[in-house]
Computed example of a mutant assay.
Amino acid sequence: MNRLNHLFATKKDNLLSIYYTAGYPALNTTVDIAEALEKAGADFLEIGFPYSDPVADGPTIQNSSQQALDNGMTLNVLFEQLKDLRKRVTIPILLMGYVNPIVQYGVERFCKKAAEVGVDGIIVPDLPMYEYESMYAKYFIDNNLSNIFLVTPQTTPERITKIDELSNSFIYLLSSSSITGGSLNVSDSIEAYYVRVKAMGLKNPTIIGFGISDSATFTKACQYANGAIVGSKFVKLLETENYLEQIPAFINSIRR
């Protein structure tokens, strides 16, 4: 049982995850931000590793990714930064990014390094399910890493069932098929999608992402899933001065 499994076994509702980009706003801030978020009450974290063509990300996260690259962030640098992660942070940590840099690094090597530094799961939005299953699943399983699959409003029930079979921690429900940084607008069709997924009785918990930015959208998402992910709104906070000092108030504003 990794930290993600333990979290979902002990807390079923209103789980809050925060996304931010490694190496942003400054190269060496990655673990400091993680520690501050845990102390402020985040349940788990998603640390993005930057890529030059982040197709699923809106302008806020795209800009943070480019700045992180300009700062010198690479996978080698990130793993070096995370080697002391577990001396300071105890909550589950996921790495999130695109398949190209992972393949360039070497998938088996990537999974081994992630496990060595205490990472619990990986989110790779552009990794095809068949490719994961046929080529890479063994590396994830051997290193006790959860692979997190994404579901959109257009995902068929058959595919969702297959994702549930392949998953061992949670399923990431996108609030829309658009890019990150939008607003959670629960239309009748989106609500029907959430209700449909919830009614499937999946064995894995579900977490909603894209468009979660405040208490109202977090609360709304938690009506349909086990929790939600805040990304762009938090990355914007990192643009301000004294952002570490503002993190407790930010988390409180989401949970209130």
Rank of each mutant, 00 (worst) to 15 (best):
F218R: 01
V195F: 10
M200P: 01
S253Q: 07
A68K: 01
T161V: 11
N143D: 02
G201N: 09
Y24K: 06
G231I: 12
K203N: 11
M129F: 11
A36Q: 03
Y136Q: 04
E116K: 06
N168P: 00
T10L: 05
C111K: 02
V119T: 02
G231T: 05
L7Q: 02
V103Y: 15
G106Q: 09
Q67D: 15
V55P: 00
C222N: 08
I171W: 08
G48K: 03
G41W: 14
Y194G: 04
T161I: 14
P128F: 13
S213M: 11
I123F: 07
S134K: 14
L145E: 05
S183D: 14
I122D: 09
V99S: 14
T152Q: 08
Y136I: 09
K12I: 06
N147F: 15
L237G: 08
D57P: 00
I123L: 13
F210M: 04
N143S: 12
V124F: 10
N71G: 04
N63R: 10
S176R: 08
M129E: 10
S52Y: 11
A216D: 14
S177Y: 14
L173E: 07
V235M: 12
T240Y: 14
A225P: 04
M96Q: 06
D84T: 11
L7R: 04
A228L: 05
K162E: 13
Y19D: 03
A42M: 06
D188N: 12
L15G: 08
Q246P: 02
N204V: 05
V55W: 09
R88L: 07
D84Q: 14
V151E: 09
P205V: 03
N63K: 13
D43N: 08
N2G: 07
P248Y: 15
A56N: 03
L78H: 08
Y243P: 00
A225I: 11
K11T: 00
I47W: 09
A221M: 06
A42R: 10
S175M: 15
P50W: 10
A216F: 08
Q104E: 10
T10I: 08
I207E: 04
L78A: 13
Y24W: 11
S177F: 09
A114W: 10
L174T: 00
N226Y: 04
N143P: 03
K198T: 01
P101R: 04
D53K: 00
C111P: 02
K198P: 00
G227R: 00
L4G: 03
F149K: 02
N71H: 03
S64Y: 06
Y51Q: 01
G211K: 10
L150D: 02
E35H: 11
K39C: 08
F44R: 02
S65P: 00
V197Y: 12
F8W: 00
Y105W: 06
Y139D: 02
N143L: 14
T217G: 07
L166Q: 07
K138H: 10
F140Q: 01
N71D: 07
